[in-house]
Design a protein around this nucleic acid. Structure first.
Lengths: 237, 237
DNA sequence: CGATATCTTGATAAGCATCAATGTGAGTGG
DNA sequence: CCACTCACATTGATGCTTATCAAGATATCG
């Protein structure tokens, strides 16, 4: 609770002062700020579930969210990890097609669906911006299909590490923060948690990474990880 | 060549008389018709390749197109099969992020990128329509991630058959036309061609399908295929 | 400091890939 | 018109990658 309160304080500052991903200033009085409200979720809490009425669109302000789909027997595929600035819940049919849960303590900006759709029609260029954002998501999804369908476990884990390193802006000394569990990683890569763990151990033994704690991974040999991720790795990996 | 000419004739009729997917009549004089030009591709020919300048946006008028990404060593993941009414080549950064090839003889409507983007800005509601289309593609991509990451070979092939059956409108007697090769199917499902073939054979032996030719598949027990595709299938599959 | 979830490591097995050979059908040229 | 050819599909034998089952180690939190 205390941590959550801190997060909220920081968030309000963020909301009031930083430009939004969508090119609309989220300052008081702007169209987006006028219809958005701040919300929080604790780790593990649901933002929305597949099949829910899509009453809201959310933007991640702070923290990390996982998106996923389930099979009837419980098998899970995580389709993405979202961080600050990313949008979720945009559902053209009014029904959520995936579930969303907080991984870390999360701060969200919630927009009522009706208000959000009015913006699409009324604010010039807004729909086009959303189209650009969605096209990028689609491209990321296609990259993930290539990973899931055609990469080995080693290549998958290397790709994951590089993705995390690439988005962690304040990763000064190549140390990546990994807030999600091995289970999340496995369900994102189409593997089991044992295979993820073993692969990371092998990377550590081969001097590619260091693992001060399970949640902190230090990249020691980015070049070789790059090669592995692209599928150009040596046969001995 | 003869076949191609026939296809083109049929296409021109189609272009002149049917409403476009995007809600803009593609009749002479409409915004879309004004900037579109008809093109053809023979089976195996490239529409565009990953890394190309995205100079054009295309709509499939007739035939089937495969979209795919490659790894450096040639491993391929097909990300989608496109049929009449579907759009390809929408690349926000101006660079194609995937390749597209004709599977069957294909007729396309080509729009110059600059003209297409002008439409986005000038035609009210057009950007929003594209947003809806792209959101649906994104949802399909997420379903495919679930398939690639978490479904067994049996479940994958069953899902594929149902997808093909679902889009084949004139599949009167539950006979699906499968214009792509086993190789394409395998690269779409993240399997090998042998596994696809074996799985289809088992479906045939179990009375779920009939295979008059490799390219024609008759659905005999849709209920059981539904169960298999959802991962609810019997253990003996 | 102790309880519990998470992670790591090990042994075994299953599913699918790989390698190899045979079968089949469409298109071509004799 | 038919045989030939070649690409595609099917079938079989074997092996590897990764999943599964199981146990122990480590981290986190109250």
């Amino acid at each position: 609770m205390h941590i959550q309160a801190v997060a909220n304080t920081a968030t309000n500052y963020h909301v009031a002062s930083h430009p939004s991903l969508f090119g609309l200033e989220r300052t008081p009085g702007s169209p987006l700020a006028a219809i958005g409200s701040i919300q929080s979720r604790d780790p593990g809490e649901t933002v929305f579930a597949e099949g829910d009425d899509a009453e809201s669109v959310y933007e991640v302000i702070r923290g990390m969210v996982r998106l996923y789909k389930l099979l009837p027997d419980g098998r899970r595929q995580i389709t993405g990890f979202l961080t600050a600035g990313q949008l979720l819940g945009l559902a053209p049919e009014g029904i959520c097609v995936y579930s969303a849960e907080a991984i870390t303590p999360v701060t969200l900006c919630r927009y009522k669906r009706s208000s959000f759709e009015r913006l699409i029609d009324e604010v010039p260029g807004f729909a086009r911006r959303l189209l650009t954002v969605t096209s990028h998501e689609l491209n990321a999804a296609q990259d993930q299909m290539l990973l899931l369908g055609r990469k080995s476990a080693t290549e998958k884990v290397a790709s994951f590490l590089l993705m995390m390193a690439g988005r962690d802006v304040d990763a000064a000394h190549d140390e990546v923060q990994v807030p999600m569990t091995r289970n999340d990683i496995a369900d994102y890569l189409g593997l089991t948690i044992e295979t993820v763990s073993r692969t990371l151990t092998r990377f550590r033994q081969d001097g590619l990474i260091a693992l001060p704690t399970p949640a902190r991974i230090k990249i020691l040999d980015r070049d070789q990880l790059d090669e592995l991720a692209a599928g150009e790795g040596d046969a001995d990996f």
